[in-house]
Each structure stands twice: as C-alpha cells, then as structure tokens.
Design a binder for these strands. Sequence first.
DNA 1: GTGAAAGCGCTAACAC
DNA 2: GTGTTAGCGCTTTCAC
Lengths: 338, 338
Amino acid sequence: MPGIDQVAKLAGVSTATVSRALSGNGHVSEPTRHRVRAAALELGYVVSSNASSLATGRTRNIGVVIPFINRWYFGAVLEGAEQALLGHGYDLTLYNLSGGDDQRRSVFEHFLLRKRVDAVIAISLELTGDEVDRLMDMHKPIVGVGGSIAGVRTLSIDDAAVARLATDHLLALGHRTIAFIGGNREYDMDFHVPSQRRAGFTAALATAGIDADPELFRAADFTIPGGYAAAKQLLGNPRTRPTAIFAASDEMAIGAILAARDLGLSVPDDVSITGVDDHELAAFFGLTSIAQFPALQGRMAVDILMDQLHPDHTALASSNTPLPFELIVRSSTARPKL
Amino acid sequence: MPGIDQVAKLAGVSTATVSRALSGNGHVSEPTRHRVRAAALELGYVVSSNASSLATGRTRNIGVVIPFINRWYFGAVLEGAEQALLGHGYDLTLYNLSGGDDQRRSVFEHFLLRKRVDAVIAISLELTGDEVDRLMDMHKPIVGVGGSIAGVRTLSIDDAAVARLATDHLLALGHRTIAFIGGNREYDMDFHVPSQRRAGFTAALATAGIDADPELFRAADFTIPGGYAAAKQLLGNPRTRPTAIFAASDEMAIGAILAARDLGLSVPDDVSITGVDDHELAAFFGLTSIAQFPALQGRMAVDILMDQLHPDHTALASSNTPLPFELIVRSSTARPKL
DNA sequence: GTGAAAGCGCTAACAC
DNA sequence: GTGTTAGCGCTTTCAC
C-alpha cells in the first residue's frame, strides 16, 4: 500500500504537488501532472480516504436511511441513489431501519454522527425535530424523499393528487361503486401515505357527488397477499361488490387481481382495478397504475445533495419539491358492464 | 462538534484516558470511566471515525458488493448482512454492480481500495484472481456468498444438490415428464447457478433412468414474466406437455403457475410446479420450493468476517462452507393424474 | 508552479 | 491507572 510520499519520490516532486495533481485542486503544470499520474499508476497508489477526510473534513460518503430494502419501491429508490452516487464518486452507507425504535435511535445517535457521512438521504422517514437538529448541528445536509419534513429539503409526490387521479380515472370510466384498499396503522407511521391517498380518494368521490362507503374500505399491509385478502372480502359478497377497486399500491392491486380471478371474476369486465407505483410487475399483470419513478427519485435526491455539497449552492434551505407522477392505463380498467 | 480534548478537559483527565475509557481498550478505573462517560454525554461527543480509523487502521465498515438490489434473494441477503453488521457496530457500504464491467472495475480499483472498508462481502459474484489479489494485498478479508472462489472463504448452497432434491421430489410423486426452466447466459455469468441447477436436474433424471428431453428445457431470466413465458411454451402444446415443471427460481415458478392458470390447467392436478428459494410469495402461491435462507446467509457471512477481523481467528483461510437448504412441500405439487 | 510545514482528531507506545 | 507524545496519511496555507 504505497503512500503519497512514495509517489512524490518517484515523480520527483513534493507530496503537496502530488495531492494537487491528483485531486485537481490548485495549479500543476501539465508535464508534472503527467509524471505524477504515471507514478501513481505505476505504484498502484490510491488515496486513503480516511486521511483525506480527516484533512478536508469531507468524506465523499452519503448515508441513506431507509425502512425497507426488499420492497420494490424502496429497492428502486435505493438503486437510483446508488447509481447516481457512484457516478459522482461517492460511496453509499446503508442504514436499514427495520429493527424498531432502538435501532433507529442508535443509528441516529451513533452511526450518523461519527463524521462518517457528508450528508444523509432519508427515504420515507419522517425525521423528528431532534434528529434533524443533530444533523444540522453537524452541518450535514439532509434530503428527504417521500414526504415533507420541517426544515428539510424534501422530494415527494402529492399522494392526495395521485389518489384523485386514479379515482378520477375510474369515475370517468363510469364507475360509481369504488372500493379502496389502503394501509393499516403500521404503514401510516411515517408520512401517512395511506391516509393521504385515502383522503384523495374520498375527495375525488365527493367531487363527483359520491359519499365514500366505509364498507368499501379495507386496510392491508401493502403486499400482494394483503391486497388479495382485502379484495376477497370486498368482492366476495355479490350484493355489495364494487365495480372498481383502487389500491394504494401496485402490490395490493396485483393481489386484488388475483383475488378477482380466484372468485371467477374477470378483470376488467367484472371489476376494474388500479394501483399506484408502476411496479415492475404492473405491465405483466396489465395493471393500470399511477407511476411514480422511484429510481428517478433516488437520483434527484442525489442531485440535490451534490448541489448542496458543492458550492454552486443556489439552494433553498428547506422546501418540498413535488415529484412527477403519471397515469398509465393498461387492461385492468374499463367501463363497468351495464 | 466537541473533540476528545474537550471531553478530557471536562472530565479532568488526558485525551488518552478518554480514548481508553470510551473504547474499552486498556485499563481505566471505574470512577474515571464514569466521569469520562458523563462528560462525553454532556457534550454530545461522538468519536470521529476518520481520525480513529487513521490512527488504528480499522474502519468498522464493511463493503458489500452485490449484483442486484431489487430481487428478493439479493435484497434478503443484504438485509441479513445489514442487521448483523449494525449489531456489531459496523457500517455497511453498498456497491451495486448493475452497471456493467466499467462500473465493476471502478468499484474494485477505486472504491474498495481507498481504505474505507475493513473487509468485503461479495454476493453471487465470482471475483477474478486479480480482484482477490488486490484485496488480499491490502489485508482485507473477503467472504463470498453464493459460490466458491479460489482462495476465498465462501458460503454457498450446493446448487446441484438443490436441483436433485427438487427433481427427486417430483420423481417420487410419480412424474416422468418433467420440464426445467433455467437461466439464460446472462444469468449464468457468475457462479453458473443455472447450469449447476440444470446439471442436478439432469443427474436426478438419469438416476431414475430418464433422459432429459431438450424440448423440455427453457431458458428465462429469473423473473415472474420470464417464467410465465417459458411455461406457456412448455404447457401450450398438449402433445408434449410435461406433467411437472421444475423452475430454477421461485419467481419463475410463480410465473409458471400463472401461465398454467391462464391455459386453464390446474396446479397441481394437471401440472406440478416447484421452484427454489422459498420466496416471500411462495407460501401465498402454495408453491413447493427448496428453501435457502438468504437472510441467514447474510448473517453468516458477517459472522465469519467478525471472526476474521477480531483475533479469535481460528479461521481456515480459504474454504467453502455449505449452506443449508430444505424442501418445503406445499400445494403446487402432487401425483400426476393418471 | 512548487515545496515546507502545520495541522485534521484520534490511538498506542512508552513512561511514570 | 493515567499522562506525554509521536505518529496515522493526507491537504492546505504560506512562502518562494
């Protein structure tokens, strides 16, 4: 493991020059730069990020805090962020907060504060004022994805608007008896995504002059089996069966499609179904969905951070940037049969 | 951001004592230890991991290199590793190698060598001799999951045995015309998992005195849609239709179940289907599967690393540890109809 | 454009 | 059991 001094010796310059030549900070003549590069290459020299971080105060490492890894949306955001960071020469340190409050506290109190990261990206996590303050105190930029956080730059889709769009699509097709599969309490913790989607759903119905029937609401856990079970309940009773279902996630919508099939109902002839996410399986199931673009969300979070970390910094200190979403109509929705 | 010297001042001791008291290395009297802890707490002091790493040469950070994030198996291994590392006070830096050769090279040449990680876990990646050497040169332990690598401590299931077990299950039920859905070249790159599973399949058939019919083999991409398409081909022709399908992954097996349903075939009455993984959806689909335990695999990899990093080090330098697997029989397999 | 030297914040000998 | 001190390997003024 050669050090900077060996490179300096080999190139016949000082360590200061090596540092400048390799980092691009400060002026070095072309010939010198070349000699240094050659020497570094020959020795297989790679800077020690610790020494460099200690000297500069910057780590080129971003902490990403995320509640799940193995759910499509979260994995996709993570993937997007990872690619973007790698492209900028940054590392990504992953903190998966699936372990409850203790773990969350320990991550915030010990891990993130060790000066190991330059900034943090929080995915679908509503940071507490205290958590934000501690990071701010250390001058660590934060960007949140998936909901707005007081005092923090965030990116999020307008969940109520998403739900309204989905519901309006169903209404426009002529549906009047529309069920909603939302989330249970556990999933409402952080940004109340399920509640907000339900609110948008209810609002859209209200605008169309329809009262939301509490019988047509089911809570589930954002998974395929959860959506399946909820839809079975909704669709099983022929007297109260809705002509359409809006599920707050594509996974649940896919579960609903499978439930309809198992009940001998045809989608969309007997029941129209729509979800949210544009999950990788949505096309396969012909699922009409409201796309949000998780990989893009990850990349955007990184862009904002880079902006904040590197002094072009036009940055608005705190604000929420709305994220794009888009109705993708496939074969799971149609006019209701007369 | 208070430094160690401030803590020292407040506690009325030297920085060395603070370091000892906080890290647990070296002897400090109980009262002193308490005073130091109290001072640290009061100031909100957290060690700078950079300074500490620079001084000790250890980072308490592990690099994890993984080809996919958003596939169930990989996500689960990652999750397992992450939990285990957090528990040991280690950070996890994630390198997702989905971007092709250039990215892979850059990760190995620049990122992993910056002395930022103490060790690396490679998931389903067959490291080249060169990649191994460079890491070894830096005295960085490596553990591989998912296949054996020359000179490296690895954990892997015996893919051929897994396939034999699945095939034997089908044979024991009385099936004689069994199709195999494997992987295409792209998925065979690293540890030849698809080829090995195919070999096990063929071997099991041979033992039963059956020649594998090349018409009953289809390559797919380890996804649900891929398995669906392959199964449609296999099951569509009534003259050549197999009575059972063994898919090299649960995702493909689930696709096959859906294909069978779409063709009006009953599972398992008309066709038995089995997969590998015990995917989180396997139970939902009643899929018979060979479970491997990815989260456990991640945890085991971490345990081995901890062992290697901390001087209990009974460690066998290089060897492959077989991983457990287990047949889980559900409702997707049964005797063939006469 | 380049070099000398003073840190960055901590740890680990080595003394006492 | 605790303090002193010399680094760990870089970066960055400040001179020249």
